[in-house]
Simulated scan of single mutants.
Amino acid sequence: MNATIARLTMSTLFGHRRGLLLFILPVVLLALCVLLALTVDNSPDFSTALLQMFGLAVIVPLISLLAATGALSSEIDDGSIVYLLSKPIKRSTIIVTKALVAIAVIVALGAVPMVIASLILDVHDPQTALAFGAGTVVAGIAYTAIFIALSATSGNAVTIGLLYALLWEGVMGQYVGGAKALSVQQWSLAVIHQLTDAPHVTSAVKLPIALILLIAVTAIGITVAITRLRSLSLSTAE
């Protein structure tokens, strides 16, 4: 990890309107949970359903999209990536550092609010809260790899990523049987299911398969991004 790249990436993420959106999304999740906790007689089924259908399926992919694409695609779009490409820094170091920064942002603005949201809905079940936090982290890692690879290979990473997050993860990954096996959300639910004894938390994918797919997607995504950055010449970046 390169400290200078990490600092520049953080500046890019939080120096524009993107940074405001990164804070708004978890605030919306927490505000909704507070409102429901005050007005609805919550049951464990209701709480976990909300965390899954709104938290895991919508908020987490969107935060991951903003963090991962902001870490790379914005620099490619405005040409500032030339600064990094002109330095004697390994392309793998650039990608891995940016990915780690994005993951750190997801942990802070995705996983931590998810734990808090779960406790707001059911303060007596910290085990499930921590399980959803862990599920958010593993999902965020996979999403980061997917969206960084997309940022490195496409000039429309945000648009494509938004369609993927909302349509595939938000709809297909929840309601279409065949698509569930290829949903990061379902893979993270397998981890959550393993960490909590709540019977209402289930996944369409068994844990061993989920872990294999999470690792494979992460490795492939990072590899694609590194390979693409290596082929990106200074003249192309400009």
Results as ranks from 00 to 15, higher is better:
Leu35Thr: 12
Thr97Glu: 06
Thr128Glu: 05
Val40Lys: 11
Ser233His: 01
Cys33His: 01
Pro113Phe: 01
Gly133Met: 01
Gly70Phe: 04
Thr48Met: 12
Leu56Lys: 09
Phe147Asp: 04
Ala134Asn: 03
Met1Trp: 12
Val58Tyr: 12
Ile160Phe: 10
Phe132Tyr: 15
His16Trp: 07
Val224Thr: 03
Ala139Trp: 09
Pro199Phe: 10
Ile209Ser: 14
Leu38Tyr: 10
Ser92Asp: 11
Ser43Leu: 10
Ala157Phe: 05
Met53Ile: 13
Ile81Cys: 01
Leu29Phe: 02
Gly135Cys: 10
Asp41Leu: 11
His16Ile: 07
Thr202Ala: 14
Lys98Ser: 07
Gln185Asn: 14
Phe23Pro: 00
Val105Ile: 10
His193Lys: 15
Ser235Glu: 14
Ala31Ser: 12
Arg91Gly: 08
Gly133Ala: 04
Ser64Cys: 12
Thr93Asn: 13
Phe54Lys: 06
Ala49Arg: 15
Leu84Asp: 10
Thr128Arg: 11
Thr48Val: 14
Thr218Gly: 08
Val184Asp: 05
Asp41Glu: 15
Ser154Arg: 13
Ile116Arg: 06
Ile106Glu: 06
Gly19Phe: 00
Val176Leu: 13
Leu195Ile: 11
Thr69Leu: 01
Ser73His: 09
Arg7Val: 10
Phe23Arg: 02
Val101Gln: 01
Ala67Asn: 02
His16Glu: 13
Ile94Leu: 13
Gly161Glu: 04
Leu130Trp: 11
Ala157Met: 11
Thr4Leu: 15
Ile116His: 04
Leu30Ala: 10
His193Arg: 15
Thr196Met: 02
Leu50Cys: 09
Leu13Trp: 03
Thr196Glu: 04
Val201Ser: 06
Gln185Lys: 15
Thr159Leu: 15
Leu8Asn: 12
Leu195Trp: 09
Met172Ser: 11
Leu32Gly: 12
Ser154Val: 07
His193Met: 13
Asp41Trp: 08
Leu13Ser: 04
Leu232Gln: 08
Leu234His: 03
Ser64His: 01
Asp125Glu: 08
Gly55Lys: 05
Arg230Asn: 15
Ser118Pro: 01
Lys180Asn: 05
Val28Pro: 00
Asp122Tyr: 03
Gly177Trp: 01
Arg228Tyr: 01
Leu119Val: 08
Pro61Arg: 06
Cys33Ile: 09
Gln194His: 14
Gly173Ser: 04
Ser86Gln: 10
Phe23Ala: 11
Val101Pro: 00
Phe147Gly: 09
Gly70Ser: 08
Phe23Met: 12
Pro126Thr: 07
Pro88Asn: 05
Thr93Ile: 10
Leu119Asn: 05
Ile94Lys: 02
Val27Arg: 01
Pro26Tyr: 02
Ala117Gln: 02
Ile95Glu: 02
Ala219Ile: 14
Cys33Tyr: 01
Gly135Thr: 07
Ile5Lys: 03
Ser188Gln: 07
His16Cys: 08
Ala210Glu: 05
Ile120Asn: 01
Leu66Glu: 02
Ile24Ala: 04
Ala37Asn: 11
Val137Asp: 05
Leu162Lys: 06
Asp77Thr: 12
Leu100Asn: 14
Val107Asp: 04
Leu32Asp: 09
Gln186Cys: 09
Gly15Asn: 01
Asn2Gln: 10
Ile63Gly: 00
Ile59Leu: 13
Thr4Met: 14
Ile141Glu: 05
Ala31Gly: 04
Ile226Gln: 03
Ala104Tyr: 07
Leu234Pro: 00
His200Asp: 14
Ala68Phe: 08
Thr218Trp: 06
Leu207Ser: 07
Thr202Ile: 14
Pro88Leu: 06
His16Thr: 15
Met172Glu: 06
Gly55Leu: 04
Ser235Ile: 13
Leu166Asn: 02
Leu163Phe: 14
